[in-house]
């Protein structure tokens, strides 16, 4: 199962730039300008919310190669997921050993 699931992950990873073929946003995930255009105003909560500034907004960096950044984003995401699982398993193991 291990090798098969990694093969699947590898294949999907290779084809990930296909996700860039559309520039249409998901329904309800618009830029603020969309509300200005459609409603004539930006709802207050949406225009004034305070949020964290993401490292790589929209899986890209302005000025860089879009496909390259999309690949890099996939690598970063996958690496972070495995890191989190490794840390959790390590903590888990330590706790079990301490309990023994």
């Amino acid at each position: 199962m291990k090798s098969k699931v990694f093969a699947v992950l590898g294949i999907l990873f290779l084809f990930v730039p296909l996700g860039l073929l559309t520039s249409s946003p998901a329904w309800g995930e618009w830029e603020n300008e969309y509300y200005l255009k459609i409603l004539g105003y930006i709802p207050k909560g949406i225009s004034t919310h305070i949020g964290l500034k993401p490292l790589l907004p929209d899986y890209s960096l302005k000025g860089g190669n879009e496909i390259l950044w999309y690949y890099l984003s996939a690598i970063i995401g996958i690496a972070l997921i495995f890191t989190i699982f490794f840390v959790l398993a390590k903590l888990n193991k330590n706790r079990k050993q301490n309990a023994d």
């Binding site: 291990k2 699931v5 990694f6 699947v8 992950l9 999907l12 990873f13 084809f15 990930v16 296909l18 996700g19 860039l20 073929l21 559309t22 249409s24 998901a26 899986y59 999309y70 984003s73 996939a74 995401g77 996958i78 997921i81 495995f82 699982f85 490794f86």
Partner: peptide, 15 residues
Amino acid sequence: LGALSALSFVIMMFN
């Protein structure tokens, strides 16, 4: 478990 979660991350990138 990591690979299946990674699959979820990657499949969400296919818009």
